[in-house]
């Protein structure tokens, strides 16, 4: 095709400025998505059946009885439920912007405070799990992809099996073997560093399997590309070619999956924190859902939405860093 190409014949454009503009655009998108999530959570709360003040009183008292008008008026005033819905909505959004997520029905404490206390361990767990899954995936794919037919087949069977392992089962097996059986790790993880490895592995192994499946096909395809032959013709060894050239061409699908993986490990944390007796947001979410503590549930939903948005912005930035050609589009 001889359509004018976008070849820049002058000096290379300043990539920093373009990257900043890209990130700015993503940020605007992020705000819109978050507003959507917050609005959905608000509408869901507002449209629940029954009188809100009665529900709140019943949760506090732990029993369902008829309430007097005076009792209800006090609750309505406390939570601003006597205002028109639109005013309540704007109060709620204003609260979110200032970091005020409301007060737990059950614990009488600000939701932000409850989440802040429990968020740390969960985020540490999620990030450790994602980092571990990358290490496992890269090692396994680099060692097995594009080898002899037998080794390649073994590689992809292991990927598929790992991707299909249920977390609660895997967690219990790891706990039985390495903590109870071999005694290498504490049975009750608590928040210690030694206690972090088994729960993180429980989340990392299935994720590594998923990412391995996505990466392997691209990896084998890239191994056949002419630039790989060029590199070998320069005297580069096979292993170095795989790490320096091929890997970069094949990890984009895994980067996308990592964004999704952050959400998956947060929800996986609910199971893992129970199995390994870790504190964290997963435990808080289970309790809040069981007791209909809506402000806490809403707060966690918004938190997870925020993390998803942040993860996706990071994924988009990583994309351009890995494949700079995408910047032109």
């Amino acid at each position: 095709m001889s359509a004018p190409s976008a070849q820049s014949l002058g000096a290379a454009p300043r990539s920093g400025a373009r990257l900043a503009r890209l990130a700015g655009g993503k940020l605007v998108n992020a705000v819109v998505v978050l507003l959507g999530a917050a609005t959905t959570a608000f509408v869901a709360q507002a449209s629940l059946p029954g009188d809100r003040a009665t529900v709140i009183l019943n949760i506090r008292a732990g029993q369902a009885i008829r309430r007097t008008a005076a009792e209800l008026a006090q609750i309505n005033a406390e939570y601003g439920l006597n205002h028109p819905l639109i005013v309540q909505y704007f109060d709620y959004i204003r609260g979110l912007v200032t970091g005020n997520l409301g007060v737990s029905y059950q614990q009488y404490r600000p939701v932000a405070q409850i989440i802040a206390e429990q968020m740390g361990p969960t985020i540490v767990l999620s990030l450790t799990a994602i980092a571990l899954s990358w290490v496992i995936m890269i090692l396994w794919v680099t060692l097995t992809a594009g080898r002899s037919a037998r080794v390649s087949a073994l590689g992809s069977v292991v990927d598929t099996t790992a991707a299909g392992l249920p977390q609660y089962w895997l967690g219990i097996i790891l706990l039985l073997v390495f903590a109870l059986g071999l005694g290498w790790f504490p049975v009750i993880s608590g928040n210690s560093i030694a206690g972090l490895l088994l729960p993180a592995l429980t989340l990392a192994i299935p994720l590594a399997g998923f990412m391995g499946q996505a990466t392997r096909a691209e990896f084998e395809n890239s191994l056949e590309q002419p630039f790989v032959i060029s590199a070998r013709m320069r005297g580069m060894g096979d292993f170095e070619v795989r790490l320096r050239h091929v890997l970069r061409h094949s990890i984009l699908p895994a980067v996308t999956l990592s964004g999704w993986g952050l959400g998956a490990t947060l929800s996986g944390a609910v199971v893992v924190e129970t199995v390994f007796s870790r504190s964290g947001i997963g435990q808080v979410l289970v309790t809040a859902v069981n007791s209909q503590d809506l402000p806490v549930v809403t707060g966690i939903v918004i938190l997870i939405a925020t993390l998803y948005v942040v993860a996706n912005v990071l994924v988009d930035i990583a994309y351009v860093l890995i494949d700079p050609r995408l910047k032109a589009q």
Partner: peptide, 20 residues
């Protein structure tokens, strides 16, 4: 030997040089 004593040039540098 490769690269130092024998150099190799392939067709189409768009794909024979690492595109990234």
């Amino acid at each position: 030997t490769r690269g130092r004593r024998i150099g190799f040039i392939l067709q189409d540098a768009l794909v024979s040089l690492d595109p990234l």
